[in-house]
Amino acid sequence: MTLYKLCVFVPATHAEAVKQALFDAGVGRVGDYDHCAFELVGQGQFRPLPGSQPFLGSTGRVERVTEHRIELVCDQRYLGAALRALVAAHPYQEPAVDLWPLLDYRQFL
């Protein structure tokens, strides 16, 4: 089984909806637990360029917004469905998503 760490930045107003969409897609399972996530609140910034359709802000102006960094573990077999669910639930035109393959720490014990 190949696991990935999925990290997404989402405005506070949509954090719960994005998490739920990911959980429904099979993300956030660790052993005998589900709905596992780490969440951190911070400030994001961006500037919409011409041709963009921003959820927040306006073209050419830097926008700062309270965002949640949400990290979850995802089994590779759920990855496609998870990313489709994330994009459907996320309000931004271009969600910021990080994805890393993980090693199973137990193999080193």
Rank of each mutant, 00 (worst) to 15 (best):
W100A: 14
V30I: 15
G44T: 00
G57I: 06
C7K: 09
Y78G: 11
L86R: 09
A12V: 11
L6D: 02
K5V: 01
G80W: 03
F46N: 09
I70C: 10
D24W: 04
E39T: 13
L83T: 05
A15R: 15
V10R: 08
R29E: 06
V10A: 07
T2A: 09
L6T: 10
F46C: 11
D104E: 14
V27I: 05
F55V: 05
L83P: 12
V73I: 15
A15K: 12
S52N: 05
P50R: 08
P95A: 14
V18A: 06
R84H: 04
D104T: 03
I70D: 08
A21N: 04
R106T: 14
L6E: 01
E39G: 09
R69A: 10
Q93D: 14
G60S: 08
A85E: 11
G28K: 01
G80F: 03
G44Q: 09
T13G: 15
R106A: 13
G42I: 01
L49W: 09
F38L: 14
D75N: 11
A82F: 10
L22M: 08
Q53L: 07
P95R: 03
T66D: 14
A81E: 13
E67A: 00
Q20A: 02
V65Y: 07
P48T: 02
P95G: 10
F46H: 07
L102T: 13
Q76Y: 06
L56E: 08
W100Y: 15
A88R: 12
P48G: 04
P91C: 15
A88P: 08
E63L: 00
R77V: 05
D98I: 00
D34I: 02
T13D: 14
Q45L: 04
R61D: 03
R29P: 00
E16M: 01
P48K: 00
P91V: 12
A82W: 04
Q76G: 01
L99F: 02
Y105Q: 12
R84W: 00
Q76N: 07
G57R: 15
L79R: 01
Y105I: 14
Q20L: 07
V97T: 05
G26V: 02
D75C: 05
E94P: 00
H90P: 05
L79F: 04
R69N: 01
V8Q: 10
P50Y: 02
K5E: 12
A25H: 08
T13A: 15
F108K: 04
H14R: 13
V62T: 12
T2P: 02
A21M: 06
Q20T: 08
Q107Y: 04
Y33L: 04
A96F: 00
Q20H: 11
W100S: 12
V62Q: 12
W100R: 15
F9Y: 14
Y33N: 14
R64W: 11
P95S: 14
F108G: 03
E63K: 04
Y92D: 13
R69T: 00
Q45S: 06
H14D: 15
A37Q: 03
Y4E: 02
L103M: 10
V73Q: 03
K5L: 14
F46P: 00
P101T: 13
G51P: 09
H35V: 09
L83D: 05
A81F: 08
G80H: 10
C36M: 11
G51C: 10
R77Q: 10
H90D: 04
G57A: 12
Y105W: 12
